[in-house]
């Protein structure tokens, strides 16, 4: 026994085994189960173990699937652009403009305050604000900006993306801020000494060095938006759909196999997207 423990590779195995077991039970097995169920057959009430491609056939033969996946990508892309823009700016301000560490920490905590409430609450509070008779519309009318209430403020793609950006920007701020703090300030001084102006420093020094943070933030935002269903349901007034809603509708109607098939396709899509993203930046090397 003692000998066994002394064996380097054996103790190595023992050390990773708790994590490996947790991952196997709570990540790998459920995913295998989803894949297995996606080949099963469902009637209205029963789910019959089988191996058939009906669920996938129906999924790929329905034009709705393609439009819904397209919609999901659209939400992910637009949300990514905005969260990146806002997240980068906020992180840049915190990392380079705020001089003292105390203020940096204080302002950073300020950013997280909205996260002390549930994200459903944060999302739903937009609804009375944006409504036809909401604060936004009455303010716009009283300022004379518009004569009629703006209908597209609520229950529209605009509302969905607004809520998504609001919910997920912090996931962009945190990793970008983190990598920015690691940038050696002398690099910026060196760039300045070499005659670079602000924009050139930003483009040629800071952005390349922040890439891993941007990439981690991107992975967070893209996976969160692609897997979301509740924001889309509430903010579009149930009128738009993304893949998450297809799955949740199927589950509500007991169509587990077809939900599983959609989930498998979504999982693969997200993995492909992340795979492509990782081609641009080697996160492991840069961390």
């Amino acid at each position: 026994m003692l000998n066994f423990l002394k064996n380097r590779s054996a103790s190595g195995w023992l050390m990773v085994s708790p994590l490996a077991l947790v991952l196997v039970f709570f990540l790998v097995l459920p995913i295998i189960m989803i894949v297995v169920v996606s080949f099963w057959r469902a009637t209205e009430f029963s789910i019959i173990p089988a191996f058939e491609f009906d669920n996938y056939e129906f999924l790929f033969s329905s034009p709705v699937t393609y439009s819904v996946f397209l919609n999901t990508f659209k939400y992910a892309l637009i949300t990514w652009v905005f969260t990146l823009g806002i997240g980068f700016t906020v992180a840049y301000f915190l990392a380079f403009h705020v001089r003292t560490q105390t203020w940096q920490i204080a302002l950073f905590l300020l950013c997280t305050i909205p996260f002390w409430t549930s994200n459903i609450i944060r999302m739903i509070s937009w609804i009375p604000f944006l409504g036809r008779n909401g604060i936004a519309n009455s303010a716009l009318i009283s300022w004379g900006v518009v004569d009629e209430p703006l209908e597209w403020l609520l229950f529209s793609d605009f509302a969905v993306i607004l809520a998504l950006v609001h919910l997920y920007t912090l996931f962009m701020v945190v990793p970008i801020f983190n990598t920015m703090m690691r940038i050696d300030k002398s690099l910026i001084e060196a760039a300045r000494d070499a005659g670079a102006n602000g924009a050139q420093i930003l483009w040629n020094v800071i952005i390349p060095l922040t890439k891993p943070g941007i990439m981690i933030g991107t992975i967070f935002v893209v996976t969160l938006v692609m897997g979301d269903f509740i924001t889309v349901r509430f903010m579009s007034g149930s009128q738009s759909a993304n893949v998450g809603r297809l799955i949740s509708n199927d589950i509500a109607l007991l169509q587990y196999p077809s939900a599983a098939a959609t989930a498998v396709v979504l999982l693969l899509t997200v993995l492909i997207v992340i795979g492509i993203l990782l081609r641009f930046v080697n996160i492991r090397k840069e961390l």
Binding site: I127, P128, G131, N133, L154, F155, S236, G237, S238, Q239
Partner: peptide, 20 residues
């Protein structure tokens, strides 16, 4: 034609009461 669809009782109340 539609402003929204509702699924729960409270949603239908809010849609109507707010004038949406």
């Amino acid at each position: 034609q539609f402003r929204a669809f509702w699924k729960s009782f409270d949603e239908s109340v809010n849609l109507m009461a707010s004038g949406e």
